[in-house]
Design a protein around this nucleic acid. Structure first.
Length: 120
DNA sequence: GACTTGACTAGAC
DNA sequence: AGTCTAGCCAAGT
């Protein structure tokens, strides 16, 4: 069973599913690359999620996606960079390295993934 | 058309 | 308990 009920439907690229899912991350919350990949039924595709974030439309809140340690990834990780500022503006507290407390802010995308996959 | 690179993670040492 | 290695998969060169 390489795929589960969250399997990717034809016509929608994995990349787009990622975008849709990320759009559903609530304000002030974050999700990890791995969680998103897992929620879409592809636990090994975390890297592709990262790629999807690097090439995402402006309406995708990519700043709410962090790595497994709760840290902002992708270069330009400095206080004042767009993602950093946006996260703080939404109430996510970041330490000096741009990391947040996942215990507190992590949002599990699994439930929303159902909606993304089944939504037209 | 093969080889390298990358906004990752999990497991081994 | 910190570091290193291997695995994955698509895009870019």
């Amino acid at each position: 069973m390489s795929f589960n009920e969250f399997d990717v439907q034809p016509g929608r690229s994995f990349n787009e599913l990622v975008h849709e899912l990320v759009r559903r991350i609530p304000e002030g919350r974050v999700a990890t690359y791995g969680s998103i990949a897992r929620a879409l039924g592809a636990p090994r595709k975390a890297r592709e999620v990262g790629w999807a974030m690097a090439n995402c439309p402006a309406d995708v809140p990519a700043h709410r996606v962090v790595n497994r340690l709760g840290c902002i990834s992708g270069g330009a990780i400095t206080a004042g960079s767009a993602r950093w500022a946006r996260l703080e503006a939404e109430g996510v507290r970041l330490d000096g390295l741009g990391c947040c407390n996942l215990r507190r802010y992590e949002w599990d995308p699994t439930a929303a993934a159902r909606g993304v996959i089944t939504d037209p």
